[in-house]
């Protein structure tokens, strides 16, 4: 999970990446909670849950158009953006970032939120492509407009 986010580290910088990896100045190692993993797994679960809801729980002919699928995607992206940004920003405000990690700003937190949006798009699209075939009413979404 961390590796995927590291590919996008130009959006949020190496300093925030250190914090998200769980860096602790006191131990000089990554001994704090790995927020990449926590946020990544949460985003994955939220995205899969939204997919399952769309294709199997909602599963209604009125919702089988692509733009309806897009509404679900946008909701997932908003939730996952707020999740990623919220955790980073609350750490920043609370001073939970190790003091030897310098120069982390709101811009970097927003950047990580954006990175999580990209990751979430990929998860949601892949998940849709995999599970849509089992849906009775939405199996052609999102390619049916």
């Amino acid at each position: 999970m961390e590796t995927i986010y590291r590919w996008l580290s130009s959006l949020f910088g190496s300093n925030l990446a250190e914090h998200l990896s769980g860096w602790s100045e006191v131990t000089g190692d990554y001994t704090e909670a790995n927020l990449f993993f926590i946020i990544g797994m949460s985003s994955l679960i939220i995205s899969i849950a939204a997919c399952v809801t769309y294709y199997y729980i909602l599963n209604h002919p009125r919702w089988n158009r692509g733009f309806k699928w897009l509404i679900f995607l946008v909701i997932v992206l908003i939730v996952n953006f707020l999740l990623a940004f919220g955790i980073c920003y609350s750490d920043l405000l609370a001073g939970n970032i190790s003091s030897d990690i310098s120069a982390i700003s709101v811009a970097e937190c927003l950047g990580f939120g954006l990175a999580n949006i990209i990751v979430s798009i990929v998860i949601f699209v892949f998940c849709s492509l995999i599970i849509k075939w089992g849906s009775r009413n939405c199996k052609f979404s999102p390619f049916k407009f």
Binding site: G22, S24, G28, A33, I38
Partner: peptide, 8 residues
Amino acid sequence: STQRKGGN
């Protein structure tokens, strides 16, 4: 999720 090699 948080298992990591423990730092000394």
